[in-house]
Amino acid sequence: MIDHESVRQILASYRDASAGERAAADAHSASCRECAAARAAYDETDALLLSARDPALPPSLSRPLAALIADRGAEKPRAAFGFAFRGGLAPAAIILVVLVTLSALLWTVNRVDAPVTSTPTLTSTLTPTTISARQTGSALAAALRSAPLPGFVPTPAPAPAPRGNLGPLFAGSAAHATMTH
């Protein structure tokens, strides 16, 4: 059994319905007043639409195609941007340019007038645990003795045992410093 809505859908595009659909819709609408009225309304719609008068052609479309192509071809360089610009891109581009210019100006003014409020400081997070230095000269030992660092205990380096011809290299060894935390 076919329902009213399906029948009306078939009736609305009856021209393109299959033979089976037409037969079903015909049988139904013969015995259903509402669907018969809908059918009459659709037929009236078709008649109204067919009789609708088309608007007159504007002059630009009344000419041969060659004239249209010649015209639009002549404005080709504009067409690439012109079609979009006529659609409203031109104002958008103008606003964008103004905004970019203003932003650039503001940035420049801020950069020139900005006061120096602070100076950057570098903070080391390195904490040495043990430093061991061995120096051949006496400069380091002397420096450490005159201004010892907290926790920095200079101890005299043990006199190295002369070993072959390397002895002169260690002859001036003055300090062996150890710092412990």
Binding site: R8, Q9, A12, S13, D16, A38, A41, T45, L48
Partner: peptide, 11 residues
């Protein structure tokens, strides 16, 4: 088909 049917009803 559905749109033609509904369009005819509305029209």
């Amino acid at each position: 088909k559905t749109r033609v049917y509904r369009a005819k009803e509305m029209f």
